[in-house]
Write a protein that binds this DNA or RNA. Structure first.
Length: 254
DNA sequence: ATGGTGGCGCGGCCA
């Protein structure tokens, strides 16, 4: 099974890039974030014509998550259990016996802001929600845009980013608590190039200078991580005309 | 340098 995740920063703008990537990488399950589309505008027909079934949980202008799959998606959930949230950031479903949870963790704006408090609260609720899902589904993947770089090697310059949004200690601690449920960042189970990132700011030539962060993650439960055979970031789409600011991440499971 | 680039949608918010 091949699983991919990509923050597309507007599916309306990036639909052709999504279909091109799906056609070449051919993921069985493809999680999208920041679709920025209300459900009535979701391009189900175009994606269906490419051979994917779809689930989506969108809103106008902001947020929005979607799951594309080459087969049935069962037992869909659009809210963390017991945690209604008007911001569409969670979409879970089961595919071929594997629980797939697509998340778009809040950005948090800046350390100490109201949005930062919302982010830390959301991550705490996420941890509870994933614990509940894990209790029912031992084979589970949590993937998406986490808006947190786990370790210094996931940041182009840790001295610059220390204490900043996406690399502050409370955010990394919240991510460690999530991993502590029995999840594995599968990217780090394989040899990887140094300075390998998944997001680069649009400004200041950050991509050209590889000033990025690795904030797009695929986390697998113990049972599933044991079956992971590869994980990589595909930087090619970030080189396109009108790119997303994120690159897709792909993992293989036997 | 509180900048800069991009999406949404048409002023200002969000990332």
């Amino acid at each position: 099974m091949r699983i991919a995740t990509w923050n597309v920063n507007s599916l309306a703008v990036r639909l052709d890039q999504v279909l091109a990537f799906a056609g070449s990488a051919r993921p069985d399950v493809f999680a999208l974030q920041e679709t920025k589309l209300p459900d009535e505008r979701f391009p189900s027909a175009e994606i269906g014509a490419a051979g994917y079934r779809v689930l989506f949980s969108g809103q106008k202008s902001y947020n929005g998550v979607a799951l594309l799959a080459r087969g049935e998606l069962l037992d869909a959930s659009r809210e963390i259990v017991g945690e209604p949230d008007p911001q569409r950031r969670w979409l879970a479903a089961s595919f071929a016996g594997v629980r797939i949870i697509d998340v778009y963790i809040p950005n948090g704006e800046s350390v100490g802001s109201e949005k930062y408090a919302y982010k830390l609260g959301w991550m705490e609720r996420l941890c509870q929600g994933i614990a509940a899902e894990l209790a029912r589904h031992p084979e589970l993947v949590v993937l998406g845009d986490f808006n947190v770089a786990p370790e210094p090697r996931d940041v182009h310059d840790p001295r610059v980013w220390e204490g900043k949004i996406m690399f502050s200690e409370p955010e990394r601690e919240a991510l460690r608590r999530l991993l502590g449920l029995g999840l594995h960042d599968v990217f780090r189970r394989f040899e990887q190039p140094e300075q390998e990132f998944s997001w680069w700011d649009y400004r200041m030539g950050a991509f050209r200078r590889n000033r990025g962060l690795r904030i797009d993650l695929i986390l697998a439960s113990d049972a599933l991580a044991a079956r992971c055979t590869a994980c990589r970031i595909d930087k090619q789409p970030r080189r396109h005309q009108r790119p997303s600011d994120h690159a897709p991440v792909i993992a293989e499971f036997r």
